[in-house]
Amino acid sequence: MKKYLLGIALCFATVGAWANEAKLPKIELPTSPEALQRGAETVATVCLSCHNLKYIKYSDLSGLGFSKEKLGALSVGHGLDDSLMSPMSAEATKQAFGITPPDLSMMAKARVGGPHYVYAFVTGFYTNDKGKTDNHVFPGAKMPDVLGAASAKGEERTAIEYKAKEVAAFLEWAGDPKAQERRGLGRYVIAYLIVLTILLYLVKLRTWARLKEHHKRKHT
């Protein structure tokens, strides 16, 4: 049903996005809480060196099923109500990389392809003819190849790809932490509406069945 709805939606909206989306490989995102937790850990230990996730607080991460101990370890030096902010200031990162790294809380929503873009980007580093590291998805990207995707081969590469999938899945969660609650509630809402609509249809049938009677009364 979701695909069908998306199809309808795409007929009307976001038409301009098709061309780009086609280039991104569609990946199977991990959904287990453990994978999301590992994704959160990678983001907190690697990405957070430069990027912020200002809309996510450490306490929000408990929604991923982190134990108290793990959460405590992850938020060392921070309060649970602190947002996930990089220790580097915006000025410092700008000096180091030439740009301010974008906030990651909405990253999986702010790019065409969403988490698939994130995955394709972090695994898309390669060494070009001039011996410099570049990116297939975002040529000229200022971000360094943090997972080491450009040089990795074989099993090492597989491990990196899995890590990237976890990161993409976590960032998708971070972009819309209420998504699971929304879909859960949605099932009940739709089920209720279907029953209601069937009842309304029966009411309509019964009402209109009286139409003949109505006409008889009027004409006699």
């Binding site: 709805l5 795409l10 309304l200």
Partner: peptide
């Protein structure tokens, strides 16, 4: 009665978007 049935059908379609593909109409 006919309009209310129509509202029911509309709400099923509308809520399918709201709950399952709410970003369909929001540009990345």
């Amino acid at each position: 009665s006919k309009d209310l049935f129509g509202v029911g059908v509309f709400l099923i379609i509308f809520c399918s978007f709201v709950f399952f593909v709410p970003d369909a109409f929001i540009e990345p």
